[in-house]
Simulated assay, not measured.
Amino acid sequence: MLLMQVADTARQVADSLTNGINPPVVAQEELRFGDLLIKGGWVMIPLVILLILALVIFFERYFTIRKAAKNESNLMNQVRSSVMAGKLDSAIAICRNSDTPLGRMLQKGLLRIGRPIKDIEGAIENIGKLEVSKLEKNIPIVGIVAGIAPMFGFIGTIAGVIKIFYDISKTDNLAMGTISAGLYQKMITSATGLIVGIIAYVCYQILNIMVDKVILKLETDAIEFIDLLEEPSK
Rank of each mutant, 00 (worst) to 15 (best):
A191K: 03
K186F: 09
K118W: 07
M176E: 02
L111D: 11
K163I: 00
V142G: 05
E131P: 06
I117A: 12
I144Y: 12
G122I: 01
T178V: 15
F165C: 10
A175E: 11
K118V: 10
T157Q: 02
A191I: 04
T178W: 08
I179K: 00
M151T: 08
G109R: 00
A175G: 15
S169F: 11
E136Q: 14
G143C: 13
F152N: 02
T171P: 10
P140W: 13
I113P: 06
G114P: 08
S190Y: 04
R96I: 04
G156E: 03
E136A: 14
Y184H: 09
Y184F: 13
N173M: 10
K163S: 08
T192Y: 10
C203Y: 07
T100V: 05
N138R: 08
I124S: 03
I120G: 05
Y201R: 07
L194A: 09
G197E: 06
F152C: 06
E136H: 11
V132I: 14
L106K: 00
S98F: 09
I124P: 02
A159S: 15
N97A: 13
F152S: 02
I188H: 06
S180L: 02
P116H: 09
T100R: 06
I127W: 02
L130T: 09
T189I: 06
I124D: 00
I124T: 02
P116F: 09
S180N: 06
I139G: 11
I198H: 09
K108W: 03
E121D: 12
S190M: 11
A149C: 13
D167G: 04
I139V: 15
D167L: 06
Q107I: 02
G128F: 01
C95N: 01
K170R: 13
R115S: 14
V202L: 13
P140Y: 13
I195K: 03
R112F: 13
E136G: 11
L183M: 15
N173L: 09
I120M: 10
D172G: 15
K108D: 03
K137I: 01
T189V: 07
P140M: 13
A159Q: 06
G177Y: 12
P140F: 14
V161N: 02
L194R: 03
V196S: 10
I199T: 10
L106P: 01
C95M: 03
A181C: 11
Q185M: 13
G160I: 00
G182S: 03
R96K: 13
A123V: 03
I124M: 15
R115Y: 14
D172T: 11
I124W: 01
K134T: 11
K170S: 15
A175T: 08
G109L: 00
R96Q: 14
V145H: 07
E121Y: 10
A181T: 05
T171W: 12
V202Q: 04
K137F: 14
I199D: 05
P140L: 12
Y184Q: 00
Y201L: 15
K137V: 04
A200E: 03
F152P: 03
M151F: 15
G193L: 04
S98Y: 08
V202N: 10
I158N: 10
T157P: 04
K129T: 07
I155F: 15
G193K: 03
L110T: 02
V196K: 07
G193W: 02
E136S: 14
D167Y: 07
L110W: 07
G193P: 08
Q107C: 11
T171M: 14
A181V: 05
G103Y: 06
